[in-house]
């Protein structure tokens, strides 16, 4: 399935200069807005009252409470990623296989919620999940429960809300890959004797792996660092790394500790992206 990319043509000196000039604004933006602040963040994280110090990292990585905070962020990201994948993977095929107005409608349903603020979506979930909200009312109407079940400010509410907010970021990369697939691939596998399950596992899943990996990396990175969604859907009772950073800067005025938490959070996100891309290369998906 993998095709070798053609080598880029050699550029002349004037072309190189033009290319350099054209890339300069983007490079400067990256340097000023991304690399420089990250360098400062890293520097601050290693400071203490008497200069260089590892105290912030020691406190973050050895205190049971802060280890549970790191685990909370990881758990939220892992469950959100798994849930969005389970919903998003078949949904991507449905959109890719739909034709004409149906496809436009489905894509519209996917894109329109992106225009709504995360805050609005989080508030909407608190309305849906409350005691007299539509979910409790429906469950009671169907006789599944006798009295309202507490859903708001629970981990279930957090996961449901988080999956809802980040679902488009799983669907879109997978859809982009699935839309390019030749539908005859499945037929070819069947003609060669593969049953539908084998055809899916041996053909469809591997060729859609680049989309899956991109979706997983996106959703994991976004949900591990989410601040607004946990703050509004569960509050202080589910402390996360993002909330710890905010508290360190805004309330306890401990910039080194906040910076260290930021570095740990960033390291987790970077590790997932690197692992994903390595897995993508080794899985042999479409290049």
């Amino acid at each position: 399935m993998t095709e070798a990319m053609p080598a880029p043509p050699k550029l002349s000196d004037p072309e190189r200069r033009t290319a350099f000039l054209l890339s300069l604004p983007a490079a400067m933006i990256l340097l000023i807005m991304f690399i420089l602040p990250l360098g400062l963040l890293l520097g601050v994280s290693f400071t203490g009252p008497e200069g260089f110090s590892l105290a912030a990292y020691q406190r973050l990585l050895t205190t049971p409470h802060y280890l549970s905070v790191i685990w909370n962020s990881l758990k939220l990201a892992l469950v959100t990623t798994a849930l969005t994948f389970l919903i998003g993977y078949p949904a991507s095929f449905a959109i890719a296989r739909a034709r004409g107005g149906w496809r436009s409608l489905m894509l519209g349903c996917l894109f329109l919620p992106l225009a709504a603020s995360v805050i609005v979506k989080a508030f909407a979930w608190t309305i849906l999940l409350r005691s007299d909200g539509i979910i409790n009312s429906t469950l009671m109407l169907l006789g599944i429960i006798d009295e309202p079940v507490r859903m708001i400010f629970t981990q279930t509410a957090l996961i449901v809300g988080s999956a809802n907010v980040f679902l488009p970021f799983m669907i879109l990369p997978i859809f982009a890959v699935v839309a390019q697939l030749d539908p005859r691939l499945g037929e070819a596998a069947a003609m060669l004797g593969a049953n539908p399950a084998v055809a899916f596992l041996k053909v469809t899943l591997p060729v859609t792996m680049p989309g899956i990996i991109a979706g997983v990396a996106l959703v994991f990175s976004l949900s591990v660092s989410a601040y607004v969604v946990p703050t509004l859907l569960i509050g202080e009772r589910y402390p996360t790394l993002a909330a710890t950073i905010a508290k360190a800067y805004l309330l306890t005025q401990q910039p080194a500790f906040g910076a260290a938490a930021g570095v740990v959070l960033l390291s987790i996100a970077i590790a997932v992206v690197i692992l994903s891309s390595r897995f993508g290369r080794s899985s042999g998906g479409l290049s």
């Binding site: 608190t126 409350r130 005691s131 007299d132 708001i152 400010f153 509004l232 509050g235 202080e236 009772r237």
Partner: peptide
């Protein structure tokens, strides 16, 4: 039910009876 940092959200829940 919750420990709030966002007062308007808390007021909203109080008004709804939650």
């Amino acid at each position: 039910l919750n420990v709030y940092t966002n007062a308007p959200q808390a007021m909203n829940l109080l008004e709804q009876g939650e």
